[in-house]
Simulated scan of single mutants.
Amino acid sequence: MSKPKQFIKKPIKVTAYQTEKVEYIETLEGTMRADVGDWIVTGINGERYPVKPDIFEKTYQALD
Rank of each mutant, 00 (worst) to 15 (best):
Q61F: 07
P4L: 03
G30M: 01
K58N: 08
V22N: 09
I55F: 13
K9I: 14
E29V: 11
I25F: 00
D38Q: 06
W39Y: 06
G37T: 12
P4W: 09
P11C: 00
L63T: 14
Y17V: 10
S2C: 12
Q18L: 04
Q61M: 10
K9M: 10
T42I: 14
I8Q: 15
K21E: 09
G43A: 09
K10F: 11
K9D: 12
Q6N: 06
D54M: 03
L28M: 10
K3Q: 08
E29N: 12
T27R: 08
K58I: 11
T27W: 12
P11I: 05
Y17C: 01
G30P: 07
K13P: 13
N45C: 05
A34Q: 03
Y24D: 11
R33T: 15
T27H: 09
V22E: 10
T27V: 00
G43L: 11
F7A: 04
T27N: 06
P53T: 03
T15W: 02
I40A: 00
D54Q: 10
A62M: 15
K10Y: 14
I25R: 03
E29D: 14
E57C: 02
M1L: 13
R33S: 06
V51Y: 05
D64L: 11
K21Y: 08
P4V: 08
K9H: 14
R48V: 04
K3M: 08
M32H: 07
L28S: 04
D64G: 12
E57H: 11
M32F: 01
I8A: 14
K52C: 11
M32C: 08
I40W: 04
P50I: 00
E57F: 03
W39D: 03
Q18Y: 11
F7G: 03
Y24T: 15
Y60R: 02
T42M: 02
K13Y: 13
P11D: 02
D64N: 13
I8K: 14
V14I: 15
E29S: 07
T19D: 05
A62F: 15
I25Y: 02
I8V: 15
D54S: 08
Q18E: 08
D54H: 10
Y49M: 02
E57A: 06
V14A: 04
G43K: 11
A62V: 12
R33W: 07
K9A: 06
I40Y: 00
L63W: 05
K10L: 10
P53H: 01
D54Y: 13
P50C: 01
F56V: 13
A16G: 07
G30K: 09
T19K: 02
Y49L: 00
K58C: 02
S2L: 12
